[in-house]
Nucleic acid binder design. Sequence first.
DNA 1: TTGCTAGTTTAGAACCTTCTAAACGTATTA
DNA 2: TAATACGTTTAGAAGGTTCTAAACTAGCAA
Lengths: 179, 179
Amino acid sequence: MNNNLTLSQDALIQALGRQSAFWGLGRTAGEMYAVLYLNSDPVSLEEVAQRLKVTKGNISVAIRQLEQLGMVRRSWQKGDRRVFFEAEVDFWKIAHSVLGLRYKPEFDQSFSLVEESATIAEQAALSAERDMVIERLKSLQEFYRLLDSLVEVVLDMSPGQLKAALEMFKLLSQKDKQG
Amino acid sequence: MNNNLTLSQDALIQALGRQSAFWGLGRTAGEMYAVLYLNSDPVSLEEVAQRLKVTKGNISVAIRQLEQLGMVRRSWQKGDRRVFFEAEVDFWKIAHSVLGLRYKPEFDQSFSLVEESATIAEQAALSAERDMVIERLKSLQEFYRLLDSLVEVVLDMSPGQLKAALEMFKLLSQKDKQG
DNA sequence: TTGCTAGTTTAGAACCTTCTAAACGTATTA
DNA sequence: TAATACGTTTAGAAGGTTCTAAACTAGCAA
């Protein structure tokens, strides 16, 4: 690999490391993914560790998370006892998986607490305060449902379909603004 | 405030505390918001601290973040030297603000690193590897643009418009599946 | 059979984030 | 004027997360 490709990979490692840390997956997760994504061939555990300058132990533990999210696959090569990893390159597939396994459960858990909150409020003695609380919780429930619905619809489309739909909405939006 | 309303608030504090922690805003931020959201009247700093069983110092620092995100407003009452807080209750407004002040900058920074990565790769010596890297980075750039576009279009709509659009897509989706 | 390699596992070190305690500054009250 | 109340600020304690070092396990090579 020549120098510019190494530098290019460095930039991507940095980009995905920050994104991953920001979204709560940990910096190393995004960095590992970046290393694998820009390699056409599967990469051994030791090579990943060397590339990122961390221990094999760290990679061994951390990459399991990426496997569970379907972002990375483990493979073996005939005549070689090492394990190799390669990146899942279909971002839509990854999005489905990450949303389904990480974000949806969290969302559902909070949503059910909000519903519980509303149920308890409805059992409170009649008062203006009670009414306001119920109203507030209803608004919040509606917002949650809207977000849920949005994610559902978007994930039900292919990237191409989504792109087409967005372009249509942009056109409609411009038409609205012109009168 | 009677017992069921307190319990109701407890559940919401828990719900929003977890969501907030999960999305990287810190548990206390979500908890504070929950306290304020379910109070029709502005709440003093000390009351928030008592309700959450933390120190005033902690609230004093943490609530500044919520103010900056436009999720909470500071107010004063004639004849009372305490400061009071109230929640912004328009979730759409909050979403605009949080996305714009928190998520967008992070996204843009990563995106520009991805673009830099692509630029550097294009300066590499011609090779099959170079071509693959460039292709991979293009895919990633496209995905980033698609997400950015989605957020832009969604935030350009009112909640009602979004709801209507989603219902339309669900209908189309069912129609597709029926043949 | 012994030595080496590769990956796994885990206690604890290192680092990061969140919170407290207390000092501080300001304004009001007695 | 002194005491009190309110909120702010910050050093460091406490808690949580990430990583290392080293022991362990398993398989292969000499």
